[in-house]
């Protein structure tokens, strides 16, 4: 798999993208949402709409309201309305395939957004999920600890993501582990990703090695909260770096306080912006394979190879905490609650 290449390329793309301006205007960029019941899609929509309209194109949307059948008719409607490109957040990635075929037959370009639809003509735009694990480990090595006794607090054993994340983490840590610099002292799954379960697991870990833990890789922010509580009870919070992901407000506050090293943040607006920019380019006639950062992806259930752009998430540490504050994801007061004046740049 060439994910690594994709991620790097996409990273480069992010930097260069904003300088690229749309060539032509007046195209229809359409989005078929699976549901607006969930808060987060509003954020994506705002980002997409802004980019589409900035390029002089028209934004058209349809809400499937959580129904696979409605989404099929939605897309058929969008095709007849003369959409040039349709972004689809699929409710059911299998049931949606006929609509993708119909669009392909009608010459309309499709982008599967966030949810993979395994149709060979569609472009897949999403966050690099395996990359999250790599980013956690990478940030730990660069800004936390690069050697010592590591504890691994994994997510629920029934969730494949917990395993994917762990693969990504191990990929990065392996050289140091093989060299004997990093020792795996505790490794445990956590029922239901529950913070309180993570707390108990961390307490047992600390007891078993008599507090000799130098770093903790926690697979998300909720569990990191439990880990930090366990560390605090031993007076270790702040001295042992802890990872996490999701950009939880409480976790970002911990990052500011210094009790958590990093929260890997998947900013929906970045994803929306990137997808909208691709849509503009495709509407102008660019082929999917000519897009910056594009690669092949075949990691779906059926193994169909599609063109894909994997957007790297943003590891939020003390150094770039201003990203989340300036981006309006969290207020400065929330992020900086209880932070000593002058200790974190973003809080000043």
């Amino acid at each position: 798999m060439n994910r690594k290449f994709l991620t790097l390329a996409a990273g480069a793309l992010m930097l260069g993208m904003s300088s690229m301006s749309a060539q032509a205007a007046g195209k229809n960029i359409c989005v078929s949402w699976k549901t607006f019941q969930e808060e987060r899609w509003k954020t994506d929509e705002a980002a997409i709409k802004a980019v589409v309209e900035a390029a002089g194109n028209k934004y058209v949307s349809a809400d499937a309201q959580g129904s696979a059948a409605k989404q099929l008719t939605d897309i058929e409607g969008l095709i007849t309305q003369g959409c040039n490109v349709i972004l689809v957040v699929a409710f059911d990635s299998d049931a949606i395939l006929p609509a993708f075929q119909a669009a392909a037959d009608a010459g309309v370009k499709m982008i599967s957004y966030d949810v993979l639809v395994e149709h060979p003509d569609a472009l897949y735009v999403t966050f690099d999920n395996v990359g999250v694990g790599r980013l956690m480990a990478k940030t730990m090595l660069e800004k936390g600890k690069s050697e010592g006794d590591f504890a691994f607090i994994k997510g629920d054993k029934g969730d494949p993501n917990a395993t994917f994340l762990f693969q990504g983490i191990m990929e990065v840590l392996k050289p140091n582990m093989d060299a004997g610099k990093i020792k795996n002292v505790c490794e445990t799954f956590t029922d239901g990703w529950k913070p309180d379960a993570a707390q108990k697991n961390m307490e047992q870990c600390l007891t078993s090695v008599n507090n000799k833990v130098d770093a903790v890789i926690s697979q998300n922010d909720g569990m990191a909260g439990g880990v930090v509580a366990a560390l605090e009870a031993q007076g270790l919070a702040g001295t042992v770096p802890v990872t996490g992901q999701d950009g939880d407000k409480a976790a970002l506050n911990r990052v500011a306080l210094g009790t958590q090293l990093v929260s890997v943040w998947k900013d929906a607006r970045v994803l929306g912006k990137a997808a909208a920019e691709f849509a503009n380019l495709i509407a102008d006639g660019k082929a999917a394979t000519e897009l910056p950062g594009v690669g092949k992806f075949s990691g779906g259930a059926k193994g169909v190879e599609v063109n894909a752009v994997l957007i790297p998430p943003n590891p939020i540490t003390r150094d770039n905490l201003s990203d989340v504050i300036d981006g309006g994801w969290i207020s400065k007061e929330e992020a900086c609650a209880g932070v000593a004046a002058g200790s974190v740049a973003a809080c000043n």
Binding site: D191, K194, Q199, V228, A229, A250
Partner: peptide, 13 residues
């Protein structure tokens, strides 16, 4: 109080 936070998953199972 022990976790120093509350989440909607607290107490599950």
């Amino acid at each position: 109080a022990r976790l120093d936070s509350a989440t909607n998953a607290l107490g599950q199972f």
